[in-house]
């Protein structure tokens, strides 16, 4: 493999990883607050893909992007209200099962509404323009994805660490009842988590599907699972962890495909999960327990 092809694959991998990272953040944040693996998250990402298909056909793309993000946020919050909120005081397993149900519901709803045939994903001419840096060439989206990911993560981290709302989120993630005693409305904080997670999934979906060119009702399933693995790999509950996990999986996957092992690239991701859980169950950046009694 020449240096150019190596760098070319690196670029592709980093770009794919960026999209994964954005989705993985949604898993890790919801887990941080609710201790719930939101299995429907990958399907929210898929629905965002369909939203884009329909939005672009009736409006210019910059407006369509905004509409897709808003639509995905509404979907994410609605799912939380309908499927998770009523189970707030139930055992955790019940919410988990509800999440799995919601995942299948969305897949089947999409099949029913849009049929299982792949739909062409709209091309945004600007994002598809080919750029050349030295010997490397790629479409703009490949360059934009990692930059945008890093920017969004920086914004997100500063919201969480330096604003009042972020402080409330950190408090709620540790102790529901005491947060309530401070006057924090738990449900608002949870909704806010779903707003952020869904918005990032919408952005991730635009970046991901622009490179893939088609959407099916099952397009969210495998990327969803991989991003879940990314979140676990980085240490579920940790946002920087999810980002590192996302990039790691994106790069590994791309190189396996490049080396001719594309059949094994998905299996490798899950192998990584098993090895990680065996060696370091809390993940790379997993929560350290600082409680002192």
């Amino acid at each position: 493999m020449s240096l150019t092809t190596f760098l070319q694959h690196c670029l592709t991998g980093i770009s794919l990883g960026g999209a994964y990272a954005l989705i993985a953040i949604g898993y890790t944040m919801v887990y941080g607050i609710l201790r719930l693996i939101n299995f429907a998250h990958g399907d929210i990402f898929m629905m965002a893909g369909y939203f884009m298909v329909f939005a672009v056909s009736s409006m210019p793309w910059p407006i369509a992007i905004v509409v897709v993000i808003v639509g995905t946020i509404i979907l994410g919050v609605a799912i939380e209200r309908a499927a998770y909120k009523p189970l707030r005081s139930s055992p955790r397993m019940s919410i988990m099962i509800s999440a799995i149900g919601m995942s299948y519901f969305l897949q089947n709803l999409a099949t029913y509404l849009f049929s299982a045939l792949p739909r062409a994903y709209p091309e945004i001419p600007l994002l598809k323009r080919i750029f050349q840096i030295g010997d490397l060439s790629a479409s703009l989206v490949t360059f934009v994805t990692p930059v945008l990911t890093v920017l969004l993560v920086i914004v997100l981290m500063s919201i969480i660490n330096h604003t009042k709302a972020g402080m409330a989120m950190r408090a709620v993630s540790k102790d529901f009842e005491t947060s309530q005693l401070m006057g924090i409305k738990i449900n608002n904080v949870i909704s806010m988590t779903f707003v952020i997670g869904s918005a990032l999934a919408a952005v991730g979906s635009i970046l991901y599907f622009t490179d893939r060119m088609s959407v099916t009702p099952f397009s969210g399933a495998l990327p969803g699972l991989k991003c879940f693995v990314a979140a676990v790999l980085g240490g579920i509950g940790s946002i920087p962890g999810a980002v590192v996990g996302g990039f790691l999986i994106g790069i590994c996957e791309t190189f396996l495909v490049a080396l001719g092992y594309s059949t094994f690239s998905d299996a490798f991701t899950f192998l990584l999960l098993i090895v990680m859980l065996l060696l370091r169950p809390t993940g790379l950046f997993g929560e350290k327990i600082t409680d002192k009694v």
Binding site: M167, R170, A171, S179, M182, G183, T290, D291
Partner: peptide, 17 residues
């Protein structure tokens, strides 16, 4: 029940939420 993952100052600030 202080918030272990918040600093002392943040714990005070959250009291004034």
């Amino acid at each position: 029940r202080v918030f272990p993952n918040l600093t002392v100052l943040e714990n005070l600030k959250i009291g004034a939420y």
